[in-house]
Write a protein that binds this DNA or RNA. Structure first.
Length: 479
DNA sequence: ATTGTCATTACTCAA
DNA sequence: TTGAGTCCATGACAAT
């Protein structure tokens, strides 16, 4: 890096620290004030929320534009960002000058097909906050690497007592602005941390156990330019997190490099991602109208693209038992189970197919792999079982969400007994596999919005994260 | 068979 | 408290 850049960097850093201290002081005052006025019976403003800095908050609220739309409409990329996509040949990452992102200009458009440093993607003014998050993740990822905090891949273990699940007021936060499409726990036991992706391309982190002096533990980044369609935590390397976006990008947050690196760039919108359990260097993703691609992370290239569905693939899932078995759900109204050894490019034939009357928004294997749960907006939750998933039963559940609520997706808990899914009455419905019906509903006066996307902590039985279309995250815990 | 447009309606934020 | 603004999801149906 050029010396002048270094001095520029230093100068900026000092400025940042100074402003940071001022802001922290202001925040302390603010939190005192909110403590005083926190007696309101229906707290509209939650105690915890992301702090968008005044200057940088969504300047120009850059409209969510897919790359496709850009090209078809012939709109040139934002002229303030050099190296925008002009044509297809520019999309290749290896043709991009390596140091374009290091300009001291405020924030780069995440549309550029280049790596983005976490510092540049950070949506606050204060680099110390960014550094604090990086240190936190480094800290627990090293512990995981050393085996101190390793969580084995999710197993069928732990029966949860639904009546004991609670939503504590402290476990609620507004993590990002706008609609959350994805929430995921970090695979660690010592620190409770979630990452969420929203419609604007933000990735927000919430360290629930952040020390008091570290503020609210919420960190906001902007590594993508469109809706974040998927988040994958590498279970064996907590310093890596993959995110996909409608704009065709798959990025990997590399905490050692402190970057949102470019893993893959597709011509088509990417609607889903998953990691192949057998080989951590393979990312499976759903792109365009029903295509499934496999990306080799070392080569940075896609090896295959299979047309598995007629319309977009909403989820991709694997069993922990058999790495060659994969499930996909699609807007074309079907969910399929595939044997990867038998899929060929020309005539993909599924092992099993469930047909719903309408779009299927998820298909997830149970922790043991013996069941598959599908969620469709035809108001059913499908349950597949049997040696070859040949037995299908449909559980009735109202799955219609409106335009502003992300579709419901039934997820599994910590064993094969329950499926958790949102409802329009601000509750979490729990479907019993044994009874094949709705068994229980989690309710809380603190859930002031509809939780539509969920994640179950891989190890802590009863720890369930629900995310809303207003950027909130609720973390239920077993008391 | 593809493309367009319309209605739906929950939440946040600013007054 | 109210009211404006949101706006890439989806299905139904109309138009090409």
């Amino acid at each position: 890096m050029a010396p002048e850049k270094l001095t520029e960097y230093e100068r900026r850093r000092i400025e940042n620290i100074k402003r940071n201290e001022e802001m922290l002081a202001a925040l302390k005052i603010q939190s005192r004030v909110s403590e005083l006025s926190a007696v309101t019976k229906r707290p509209r403003a939650q105690s915890k929320s992301y702090q968008a800095s005044p200057q940088k908050k969504q300047k120009s609220k850059s409209p969510v534009v897919l790359r496709r739309s850009l090209r078809t409409k012939g709109i040139p990329p934002d002229s303030s960002t050099a190296g925008g996509i002009k044509d297809d040949s520019d999309d290749l990452p290896d043709r991009i000058a390596p140091n374009k992102y290091s300009q001291p200009a405020p924030k780069k458009s995440p549309r550029e097909p280049i790596p983005i440093s976490m510092r540049d993607a950070y949506s606050g003014d204060f680099d110390v906050s960014n550094q604090r998050l990086i240190e936190t993740i480094k800290d627990f990822s090293h512990k995981i690497d050393d085996g101190d905090d390793r969580i084995e891949k999710r197993k069928a273990s732990g029966t949860v007592h639904l009546e004991s699940l609670r939503l504590e007021p402290d476990n609620i936060a507004r993590v990002v602005p706008g609609r959350i499409l994805n929430v995921r726990f970090f695979p660690t036991n010592n620190v409770r941390m979630v990452a969420v992706g929203n419609k604007f391309g933000n990735i927000g982190f919430w360290n629930v156990d952040a020390p008091q002096e570290d503020g609210d533990g919420i960190y906001l980044y902007h590594p993508h330019s469109g809706p974040v369609s998927g988040i994958v935590m590498d279970p064996f390397s907590a310093s890596k997190m993959f995110t996909s976006c409608y704009d065709g990008f798959i990025r990997v947050m590399d905490i050692e490099k402190e970057m949102f690196d470019l893993a893959y760039l597709s011509e088509h919108p990417i609607f889903s991602i998953s990691q192949w359990p057998h080989d951590m260097n393979s990312i499976y993703y759903g792109e365009g109208s029903g295509e499934l691609g496999i990306c080799d992370l070392r080569a940075g290239k896609s090896s295959v693209s299979w047309k598995l569905h007629e319309e977009r693939i909403n989820t991709i899932d694997f069993t922990s038992e058999n790495c060659n078995i994969m499930a996909t759900s699609s807007t074309d109204g079907s969910a399929c189970i595939w044997d990867l050894r038998k899929v060929s490019a020309h005539k993909p034939k599924s092992l099993q197919t469930v047909r719903h009357k309408r779009a299927v928004h998820s298909a997830y294997f149970s922790p043991s792999g013996r069941f598959l749960a599908t969620t469709s907006i035809d108001n059913t939750v499908g349950l597949l079982s049997g040696a070859n998933y040949e037995d299908t039963s449909m559980v009735s559940h109202f799955n219609h969400t409106n335009r502003w609520i992300s579709s419901f997706r039934g997820i599994w808990g910590w064993d094969d007994s329950y499926i958790y899914i949102g409802n329009m009455q601000r509750g979490v419905d729990v479907i019993s596999v044994a009874d094949k019906k709705l068994d229980f509903t989690l309710r809380s006066e603190h859930m002031t919005a509809i939780p539509c996307r969920f994640d179950a902590h891989q190890d802590k039985v009863g720890m369930l994260a629900g995310a809303t279309s207003g950027g909130q995250v609720y973390i239920w815990t077993a008391s």
